[in-house]
Nucleic acid binder design. Structure first.
Lengths: 327, 327
DNA sequence: ATGAAAGCGCTAACAA
DNA sequence: TTGTTAGCGCTTTCAT
């Protein structure tokens, strides 16, 4: 494995000139440029990022923090981040925290130790104090999930409006007994979505029934099953369920199918996120689509700008209600 | 951001001593060690991986190549790789090739340029010639999907036997008209799984019917629907389908549900991989479980050993037929 | 047990 | 346009 010195020697020039050719600086004479390129080819030289990164005090790595990689919600966002990162010569380190503080800390250490130039956090359970502290010296962007503390820039959607529209859609369909499967209210988005739910009900003069509002710590399939069992065992069953995640809704669907409850005839169902599987179920799931890919590219652009010392502003992107078979 | 020099100055020692403390070498006097640790705390010093990596000619990054991150098959494998990597102080760079040679090359470049110390390839569509070439100078392991060319170590399961057992299970259930939804036979695992299918049929004296053997370029939900449409429009419909991926089988299930065909009564269904969703469908899917997490840890261990210059041997892990509602 | 110094591979400021 | 040289932050050899 040749290094820049050997290339310089073979080409009969200095390392500075080789470096100039490598970095496409146009000061080099075509003639010398060719000499250098020949030497590079001859030696099969590959410039080492190790030297370059140390010299430039950068790693060209972006850290992407997700609670779990198996939640399909993150796929498109990650794709957006990654494509944008590659376009700007960055690579992404995808980090799964499992909402485990220890693991999270391993990853935070990577930016402290200069293995990463910045962080895009999508973990709602992230330790916001640590994040605040880190953001003083490092570039950080929050994506989708965010906290207002610490003035960390974020990109997200209007969660309240999204929930409002979903519930309004159910009401227009004639539903009045509408259950809400929500996330823990310690999360901002959970509070916002509840607000949207309540707002829609109140607008149509429907009493908010606490029995219909269920909270789960995780947003998975299993939790959807459990919540459905609970709500369907009430004397006064709901005729519609609004879940704040598709996975939750798919769990609900499974339980309803299992117990012979017809969807949407007996119980209508709305999810959130428009994951691929929401269109594969039987019946297909009405859901709220977030512009995930775009969210990813925007977050990535914001982060790269921040790394470059620019000021960045919070962004709100548009969502959309996708009406399918389950309502 | 302090560096090692400042720490040395504040502690009143040389940088060598600081480095020794950092790396837990036991030669340092407790007294000086304390001085150094105090200085580190005082300056909030964080050692830079950039300097260390250059000095050690390593990046402590493992590159993990998958065709797509949205295929749930890879989740557990990736988790296994990651946990094992973290345990050995490595980080993983998860790379999605989209089976796109250009993208693939971007990632290969990372190891050429020392941004990664080795590769775990899980992409069946990987350019095997490039991989062979790379493996001369870099540590590479194949996981799950593999090619015998180039003597690149791999970890996998016995695909032929897995398929054989799945089909035998269907035969024992009384099925004789068994369709095979397979991947393109340019892939080794596709040929192996077909061999298992044929072997089971022949063992029970059942004629192999070419009409029942369908090939799809991708192993997704949509392909499952299309293949099912095709096979169910035959005059002599099959009574069972063996799909080489769960996603394919879930597509089949969707199509059968849509057209009112009862599963498993009219058509039995077997998938492959035991992805999470295979247990969420209605009915739940009989499938073949690969020890994915273990596959990941094994692959990661093999790679790290290879990076350290050790010899590594190919490994075959055990699979298991999970009988659920669809058969 | 500790320190001085070289060097990993690169870029860029300065000089020519 | 090109070369010389310092230095990014660290580890390690060799002296002491």
């Amino acid at each position: 494995m040749a290094n820049i010195n050997e290339v310089a020697k073979v080409a009969g020039v200095s390392v500075a000139t080789v470096s100039r050719v490598l970095n496409g600086q146009n000061v080099v004479t075509p003639k010398t440029k060719i000499k250098v390129e020949d030497a590079i080819r001859k030696l099969k030289y590959e410039p080492s990022m190790l030297g370059r990164n140390l010299r430039n005090s950068e790693s060209r790595v972006l850290l992407v923090l997700v609670p779990t990689i198996s939640n399909p919600f993150y796929f498109e966002i990650i794709k957006g981040i990654e494509q944008n990162a590659l376009d700007h010569n960055y690579n992404i380190l995808l980090c799964e925290t499992d909402s485990n503080p220890e693991r999270e800390n391993i990853y935070f250490d990577l930016v402290r130790k200069k293995m990463a130039d910045g962080i895009i956090s999508m973990d709602p359970a992230v330790n916001i104090d640590t994040l605040k502290e880190l953001s003083k010296n490092h570039a950080i962007i929050q994506c989708s999930e965010y906290s207002l503390e610490g003035n960390i820039p974020y990109v997200t959607i209007d969660n309240e409006d999204a929930a409002y529209r979903a519930v309004k859609h159910l009401i227009k369909l004639g539903h009045e007994k509408i259950a809400l499967f929500n996330s823990n209210e310690k999360y901002l988005y959970a509070r916002q979505r509840k607000d949207g739910y309540v707002k829609a009900l109140e607008e149509f003069g429907i009493q908010v029934n606490p029995d219909y509002m269920l909270y789960t710590d995780q947003l998975g399939f299993e939790q959807g099953i459990q919540a459905t069992k609970k709500v369907m065992s009430l004397k006064d069953r709901p005729t519609a369920i609004f879940s704040v995640s598709d996975l939750l809704a798919i769990g609900a669907l499974k339980e309803l199918n299992n117990t012979g409850v017809e969807v949407p005839d007996e119980v209508a169902l709305i999810g959130f996120d428009n994951i691929d599987f929401s269109n594969m179920t039987h019946p297909t799931l009405t859901t709220i689509a977030q512009p995930m890919y775009q969210m990813g590219t925007v977050a990535s652009t914001m982060l790269i700008n921040k790394i470059n010392g620019e000021d960045v502003e919070n962004k709100f992107l548009n969502h959309e209600l996708l009406i399918r078979e389950s309502t």
